[in-house]
Design a protein around this nucleic acid. Structure first.
Lengths: 132, 132
DNA sequence: ATCGCACACGTTATAGCATAACGCAATTGA
DNA sequence: TCAATTGCGTTATGCTATAACGTGTGCGAT
C-alpha cells in the first residue's frame, strides 16, 4: 500500500506546500491556488486530509497550519513519532525523529494501558538566527 | 513571585475547569458561566490567559481546549515539559511529566541551537476502558 | 450493458475558535 | 493630582473547519 497517484487538487495543494518556505494555513493555501481554480476551503481541506493520510504532509497543531513532510524516505516504513521545532521569529519548521523519545513515551503510555493513535510533539521557540 | 489572588472572572473560569470531568473549549466555558453573568468570549479568553500564565491551566493544542492543571505541587518550581494522554473515547486527559524525555528533547533541540520557549506533547488514543 | 458503489469534486451555508478596538472603572505609585 | 497599569464589558470582526447537498467518473459484479 504505497502512495496512490495524486489527484489534480491534491497535487496543487502538495505543490503549494512544497514550494513554501514555511507552514501555511488552509486558507493561505486557498488564496495561493485561486488562480488555479480553487474557490472554497473544502477543496483545500479535502486534499489535505488525503495528503495527511499518505504521510506527505504534517499538521502543526499549535499553529493550525500544515507543512510538507521533509523526510521523503520515511513515507514507506510508518515511522511513529514526528517532532518539530517551530521558530516564532522566522517561521522555520524543522522536523525530526528520535527513537529514544519514542521508546520512552511508548513505555510511559503503556504503563497507563493507553493505546496511542497519534502523537504530537511541537517545540515553539527561536532558531539560531532568530535567538533573542 | 507566586500566584496572585485570582479576580472574580478568573476564579469562575478556574472553578468551571476544576469541576469539569475533562477539557473544555472557551465557548463551552462561556456557556457554563452565563448564569454567573458572562456574556462574551473575551471574558473567558482574558481569564484563561492569566490562568495559563500562572500555570493553573493548560491548553491542549490538538483539541483547542483547556484543562485544569492536575499537578498542584508543581506550580512553584517551573517544571519544564508537560505531556498529556487524551482519550478519544471518553475525553479523559491525563497529565504527566518525565525527566528522561525532557533531557532528551533538550539535547536534540540544543543540537539545532534552538531556544525552547514552550513544548507541547499530546498523545491521542484510547484509554484502558475505551480500548477498541 | 447497466447497475451499484466508491471516490473525487464543486457549491452554499454554517459552526466553532479567537482577537481587534473601543471605552470605563479601580488601584497604585510618582 | 497625574500617569500608568490592570481588569472589565461590549460590539464587531476575522480565522479555522465542517455539514449537507448534488454532480460526474471509473470500475467491478451480475
Amino acid at each position: 500500500m504505497g502512495t496512490p497517484q495524486l489527484t489534480k487538487n491534491q497535487s496543487l495543494v502538495m505543490g503549494a506546500l512544497a514550494h513554501s518556505e514555511g507552514p501555511m494555513s488552509a486558507y493561505t493555501i486557498l488564496d495561493k491556488l485561486r488562480d488555479q481554480g480553487f474557490r472554497a476551503p473544502l477543496q483545500v481541506y479535502r486534499a489535505l486530509d488525503k495528503l495527511l493520510e499518505y504521510g506527505l504532509v504534517h499538521r502543526l497543531e499549535s499553529l493550525n497550519a500544515f507543512v510538507a513532510c521533509t523526510c521523503p524516505h520515511e513515507h514507506e516504513h510508518d515511522r511513529g513519532v514526528t517532532a518539530f521545532t517551530i521558530c516564532e521569529g522566522c517561521g522555520q519548521v524543522t522536523e525530526f525523529h528520535d527513537a529514544a523519545i519514542e521508546d520512552r513515551l511508548s513505555a510511559l503510555v503503556r504503563a497507563q494501558s493507553f493505546k496511542t493513535e497519534k502523537t504530537t510533539i511541537e517545540i515553539r521557540g527561536h532558531c539560531k538566527s532568530c535567538a533573542a
